[in-house]
Simulated scan of single mutants.
Amino acid sequence: MEIKTVSQCTLEDVLKAWNKGFEGYFVQITMDEEMFLNRLVGEGLSPKLSLVAFDGNEPVGIVLNGVRHLNGRKTSWNGGTGISSDYRGTGISRALMEETLAVYARESVEIATLEAITGNSKAIALYEKYGYRIANRLLFLSGEFKTKVTEPIQMQIETLHPEQLSNLSFYQQEVPWQCSWHSNKQGQAKVFYNLENEAVGYMLYRSQWAKDGQLERLVLYQLEVLGQGSVDYIPYFLDSITNQPVKIATVNFLASNPVTNYLLENGLEVTTEQVQMKKIMNE
């Protein structure tokens, strides 16, 4: 077996490793060239830090990696580890994990993060073997939000570019990788203030449009209610985007976030459950 970086491989081999590696997986994540390249760029994944395992000339395993500074600490993310079905259980996942941790060490990573489907007990056990620990329970939700705005609330709304969120003292930096502003530079952000100019909440989201030009779905990456706010403000937050019925999907919302429970009580359902895992390097 030989391990190369993605930057040393052809795009054809990398795609083959990815698509074969996730055959029969819990969630269908087959990608074509455009989807794969968009994901690399959009989510800050590094071809020089990502790895492909070969058996001769055959790509049989892959792990995608990215590194960022979050809250002043160098943080990595494993954006997907896949092994071809014929090679599962042969030690390739362990070899890729060991080489990945070596990459993190060379890059002076302080915190290593990843997510795993809750039902994927083998993967979770592997990560725990290499020092990862479950930090959070994460939920993907989907459905039509059923609560309507009844009485108007006086609220100030500021629309921002996603990267501007990082300059706000109340913005939460430590969120799952795909939910940060870094991964959603093409998205939209809103901050909500009461009449005393106190921030009561903010959203990071993307709008998806139908062919007829109508808003088809909102994808929420962050929806936070702050100190002077209340989950009862959420209908007003969403109404600032549209007052028409719209489907909503959330990405990796913390199960412990009161917002998550509020959405579940108002029309959304759990579609996927994951665990967020973290490893403190050099611990």
Score class of each variant (00 low, 15 high):
residue 87 Y to S: 06
residue 281 M to W: 03
residue 26 F to R: 04
residue 154 Q to L: 11
residue 129 K to C: 05
residue 182 H to F: 11
residue 38 N to A: 07
residue 261 N to G: 07
residue 35 M to I: 11
residue 84 S to R: 06
residue 53 A to T: 08
residue 17 A to M: 08
residue 123 A to C: 11
residue 121 S to T: 14
residue 230 S to L: 01
residue 177 W to F: 13
residue 37 L to R: 15
residue 32 D to R: 07
residue 254 L to E: 12
residue 65 N to L: 13
residue 78 N to C: 12
residue 274 Q to L: 06
residue 89 G to Y: 04
residue 211 K to C: 03
residue 19 N to M: 02
residue 150 T to Y: 02
residue 144 E to M: 14
residue 78 N to R: 00
residue 220 L to E: 01
residue 275 V to S: 09
residue 240 S to I: 07
residue 137 R to N: 13
residue 272 T to S: 10
residue 168 L to S: 00
residue 188 Q to S: 13
residue 15 L to H: 09
residue 95 A to E: 10
residue 206 R to H: 14
residue 138 L to A: 03
residue 173 Q to R: 10
residue 241 I to Y: 10
residue 67 V to D: 09
residue 45 L to G: 07
residue 130 Y to S: 09
residue 186 Q to P: 00
residue 59 P to C: 08
residue 143 G to D: 08
residue 237 F to W: 09
residue 150 T to N: 11
residue 36 F to I: 02
residue 113 T to W: 01
residue 283 E to F: 05
residue 183 S to L: 05
residue 13 D to P: 03
residue 272 T to L: 13
residue 126 L to F: 10
residue 140 F to L: 05
residue 194 N to D: 15
residue 89 G to I: 10
residue 6 V to N: 02
residue 16 K to Q: 09
residue 211 K to G: 03
residue 152 P to F: 05
residue 52 V to T: 11
residue 251 V to Y: 04
residue 243 N to W: 03
residue 174 E to V: 08
residue 231 V to W: 06
residue 11 L to N: 12
residue 67 V to T: 15
residue 10 T to F: 05
residue 55 D to H: 04
residue 231 V to G: 12
residue 280 I to A: 12
residue 78 N to H: 00
residue 48 K to M: 11
residue 87 Y to H: 14
residue 203 M to S: 13
residue 12 E to H: 04
residue 88 R to M: 05
residue 125 A to N: 13
residue 246 V to C: 14
residue 262 Y to S: 10
residue 139 L to H: 07
residue 192 F to K: 03
residue 33 E to H: 07
residue 274 Q to P: 02
residue 108 S to M: 07
residue 266 N to T: 11
residue 35 M to R: 13
residue 143 G to F: 01
residue 8 Q to Y: 04
residue 214 Q to M: 11
residue 89 G to H: 04
residue 84 S to Y: 00
residue 246 V to E: 10
residue 82 G to Q: 04
residue 219 V to T: 15
residue 18 W to D: 00
residue 13 D to T: 06
residue 46 S to K: 03
residue 80 G to C: 12
residue 4 K to S: 12
residue 29 I to A: 09
residue 16 K to V: 01
residue 106 R to E: 15
residue 45 L to M: 14
residue 78 N to S: 12
residue 255 A to S: 15
residue 199 A to R: 01
residue 221 Y to F: 14
residue 91 G to T: 03
residue 157 I to G: 02
residue 227 G to N: 10
residue 150 T to L: 11
residue 256 S to I: 09
residue 224 E to A: 09
residue 186 Q to A: 08
residue 65 N to G: 08
residue 148 K to F: 02
residue 229 G to I: 06
residue 45 L to Y: 11
residue 242 T to D: 08
residue 162 P to D: 04
residue 103 V to T: 15
residue 194 N to W: 02
residue 65 N to Y: 07
residue 201 G to Y: 01
residue 280 I to L: 14
residue 230 S to Q: 06
residue 282 N to W: 07
residue 141 L to E: 13
residue 26 F to N: 02
residue 118 T to N: 10
residue 139 L to I: 04
residue 69 H to W: 10
residue 220 L to T: 03
residue 186 Q to G: 14
residue 75 T to N: 06
residue 265 E to T: 07
residue 91 G to N: 01
residue 81 T to E: 07
residue 259 V to K: 05
residue 131 G to W: 01
residue 61 G to I: 03
residue 153 I to Q: 14
residue 179 C to F: 01
residue 28 Q to M: 02
residue 72 G to N: 15
residue 214 Q to Y: 02
residue 38 N to Q: 08
